[in-house]
Amino acid sequence: MHRNSYSLAALAAAAVPGLVPVRTTPIATPAEDLDVAGIVGEDGRRVMVLSPGSTASGVRLERDLRVADALTGTPLSGVVPPVLGFVKLSEGGRCVVTEAPVGRPLMLDDLSSGAELAQSLGTVLARIHTVPRYAAEAAGVESFTPEVLHAQHRARIAEITAGGHLPAAVAQRWQALLEDEELWDFTPQFVHGDLSEESLFLSGHRISAVRDWSSSKVADAASDLAWLISSLDPERFDQLYAAYREELPTSAHPRLMERAQALGEFAVAEWLAHGLATDDAEIIADARGMIGDLDADLAQIAREEAERTFDAMSSHEDDEPR
C-alpha cells in the first residue's frame, strides 16, 4: 500500500511524540515500493519517514534497520541517522522515522567539483570496509567466500558469452580477468552492497549520511568501489582512493583497484542479462552500447600498443651500426 506525503506526515507524528508536522519534502529512493518523505516539524526539527509499500520492501526495511543499529557503535555512527520511532501499519509491518540526513542527496557531478568531497567519500568507504565482522554478523548479513563470488562472476559472464552478445575482444578480456586467480584471492569485508547517489548525502564538502543498508553483506570491498571507478575521471578517483587507503588500518589488497575495474565492467553484463530476462529493449540497447564503448576502448589500446612496439623496433634499428 502506497502513501502520499500527507499520510506519511501523519505516521511520523504518531511515531514520534511531540512532533507536529508543518511541511513535507520528497526524498528520492532507489526502491519503487518504499515511500519516503522528509518532514519538518513546527519547532524546525527535520525527520525522515519510511513506509514499505509491499511485504518485500518491509523485509528490506527491517534488514536496513538491523544493520544501521549494529553500526551505532562504530566510526560510522556519525553518518547513520538514528531511529526515532516506529508505528505499526494496518496492513502489517511498520513505518520507521529517523533523523533526517544532514544536507542533500549526492550527485556524481558533485564529486567533480573538487578533491575534498571525493576524499570524504573515500574515508567513509574505508570505515564501512573496516566494520568488524562480528558486528555485521550480529545484524544477520550474509557472508560470501571469494570462491563463491568468483563462481558467480564466471557464471554470469559465461551466460552472456554463450549467447553471442560479446565482441571477441571484450570476451577475451573478461575471460582473462576471470582466469587470473590472484586477482580474486582476497579477504571478504563488510560492504554496503548498493551504493548509489540515492544512498549518499553531502553537506558542504563532506559525506554527511549513508542510508539503505538492506543489501549489506560480507563480501568483496571492490564491489563498493566499482561504480565509482567506472563513473569518475581517473584523477578524482585517485584522490578518493588515496583517502581510502590512508583511513584503512591495514594495507588494501594490492589489486583492489583492478578488481573494482573488472566488477564495473561485469556490471554491464549483469545489466544486459537483466534486459534480456525482462525483454526490455531500452535496457538491452543501453547495455550493448556500453559494451560497444568498451570494445572501442580495447581496440584503441591495442592500436597504441602496436604503435609503441613499432616505434621501439624502429628506434632499435636506427641505433644499430651500419
Score class of each variant (00 low, 15 high):
residue 1 M to V: 12
residue 7 S to D: 14
residue 9 A to D: 03
residue 18 G to I: 10
residue 19 L to P: 07
residue 23 R to G: 06
residue 24 T to C: 12
residue 26 P to D: 02
residue 35 D to W: 02
residue 39 I to M: 07
residue 47 V to R: 01
residue 49 V to R: 04
residue 52 P to T: 11
residue 57 S to M: 08
residue 59 V to D: 00
residue 60 R to S: 07
residue 72 T to R: 15
residue 73 G to W: 01
residue 75 P to N: 06
residue 77 S to D: 06
residue 81 P to W: 08
residue 82 P to Y: 10
residue 83 V to F: 04
residue 84 L to W: 09
residue 86 F to H: 13
residue 86 F to G: 04
residue 87 V to I: 04
residue 87 V to D: 00
residue 88 K to A: 14
residue 91 E to G: 00
residue 94 R to K: 15
residue 96 V to K: 03
residue 101 P to C: 14
residue 102 V to T: 15
residue 112 S to Y: 05
residue 113 S to I: 10
residue 115 A to E: 11
residue 115 A to R: 12
residue 120 S to I: 14
residue 130 T to V: 08
residue 137 E to G: 03
residue 146 P to W: 05
residue 149 L to D: 03
residue 150 H to T: 08
residue 154 R to Q: 12
residue 159 E to H: 09
residue 161 T to P: 00
residue 162 A to W: 02
residue 165 H to V: 06
residue 167 P to S: 04
residue 168 A to Q: 07
residue 177 L to N: 10
residue 182 E to T: 13
residue 183 L to Q: 03
residue 188 P to N: 06
residue 189 Q to G: 03
residue 191 V to F: 02
residue 195 L to I: 15
residue 198 E to P: 00
residue 202 L to H: 08
residue 209 A to D: 01
residue 212 D to H: 05
residue 215 S to M: 09
residue 218 V to R: 05
residue 221 A to S: 12
residue 225 L to K: 05
residue 225 L to P: 04
residue 231 S to H: 08
residue 236 R to S: 12
residue 239 Q to I: 10
residue 239 Q to W: 11
residue 255 R to E: 03
residue 261 Q to V: 10
residue 263 L to A: 09
residue 265 E to M: 06
residue 266 F to Q: 08
residue 274 H to W: 14
residue 276 L to R: 13
residue 280 D to T: 14
residue 283 I to G: 00
residue 284 I to M: 09
residue 298 L to F: 12
residue 301 I to H: 11
residue 310 F to P: 00
residue 317 E to M: 13
residue 317 E to C: 09
residue 319 D to N: 12
residue 319 D to I: 05
residue 322 R to A: 10
